[in-house]
Amino acid sequence: MAERMRVGLFITCVNDTLYPDTGRAVVTLLERLGVEVGFPEAQSCCGQPQFNTGYRSETEPLVRRYAEAFAGYDHIVTPSGSCAAMVRDHHPGFAVPGAADAARRTLELTEFLVDVLGVTDVGAYYPHTVTYHPTCHGLRALGLGDRPRRLLERVRGLELVELPGAEECCGFGGTFAVKNAAVSTSMGRDKARAVVSTGASAVCTVDNSCLMHIGGVLRRAGSPVRPVHLAEILASTGESAGATGHGTGTRGAIR
């Protein structure tokens, strides 16, 4: 099955610029599972920041670019719950040729793994205590359900601990984080407190935007808990995860 599929990686602008490790992890993981990954360089941003702030007309060129860049791929896979939700829920609402079709072919990484490849054991090894925050878009917009959890449960060495109040928003919310900085920070601090209370050494999500927020609050508080994208956990095997503890992320910076 995996041989003939044309799979395009939609890296997202945030991951491209700030979290390339996540992108490399997705490539590593998918190729390990026998998937041939393409990366159309014409791709850019899904338009979520513009769209969610009300700039619909600034969004349209990005919707067009997305549809064109990914034409011809059977599946478009992205390591971001919120970008997948943006594409699936909102791109079809634009009068752009191919937008609805591209939206239909777009999958968040865990959906692709569980629903298309039919795997939950991806051969990962990650000897750490991890807590999982189901991001709002993953949870409510995409309805990822227990897919991330099922994948995490099959990671060797990993101990998954429950996050109290897991379904509450972390407070990122795109431009909300600066427009309503006080409320956003208060939400972030409560989320960070819940994370720390689990005793986990890492908090993982399917979205680096939320992790940037949660991680930013944790780091400001001097917490050693490390934000890790789910893809990076799933990509680790004995060799890469062992010595350094958490792979080689640029987010490492435990002070």
């Binding site: 890296i11 610029t17 979290y19 390339p20 360089e41 972030g188 940037m212 930013g216 400001r220 640029t250």
Partner: peptide, 28 residues
């Protein structure tokens, strides 16, 4: 400026030396 609304309470992520795009070009 407006960025202060972020950094007043949260650390910024470090910008990596190489973007994903560049890594892809270089290696692929």
């Amino acid at each position: 400026g407006p960025g202060a609304a972020w950094t007043a309470s949260r650390d910024l992520p470090e910008v990596p030396a190489e973007s994903f795009r560049r890594w892809w070009r270089r290696t692929r």
